[in-house]
Amino acid sequence: MTEIQEVFDLYDSMERKNIMLSFKGDMSTDLLTSILQLIENKLDRFGESPKIKRRMFNILVECLQNLYHHIDAPPRTLDGKQRASVIVMIAKNLNGYSIITGNYVLNDNAEALKKRLEEINGMTAEEVKQLYKSVLADGKMSDKGGGGLGMIDIARKSGGKLDYGFIPFDDGSTFFSLNVKVKQD
């Protein structure tokens, strides 16, 4: 059982990191819609510029839909329970916002993802823009509909390098975490 102290520590840690929203569990379409609505309302209340509101909304849609589409349940778990749930945290910083996500991916997919992220981070803003256009134009469509554009779009809209990490979980799966910074101009 979780002790009261643990609850407070969790709360306190989130408070100090200016977490506006934190969620751990299954990502569903309804939840996705609710998170978008909630963050949109908060940004309105903060009086943010249309530009940062648009950027946040666009990037958040892609991050959440990545979690919705690309979640892989680890083939084996420590206690036999499903560990397919994801984590989402949205924090306000001094110069903008951070959208942090975490989810399990199969090792094979993790390798491909890592390669793509390294490729994107090695590019200039103009090169990322050209990559987006060429992936869009080649017409290939994945069964999820996106065709691998999501990560490129996130990089393009955030305008900075993507901050990410992989933590090996077991023989089959890896925990992937992404931290996207959305800066105020």
């Binding site: 849609v61 869009l136 017409g139 509909g145 554009l149 779009d153």
Partner: peptide
């Protein structure tokens, strides 16, 4: 106003 990358291929 907004479109996601999943829509971008369909719009194309």
């Amino acid at each position: 106003e907004y479109f996601n990358t999943s829509s971008s291929k369909c719009i194309l």
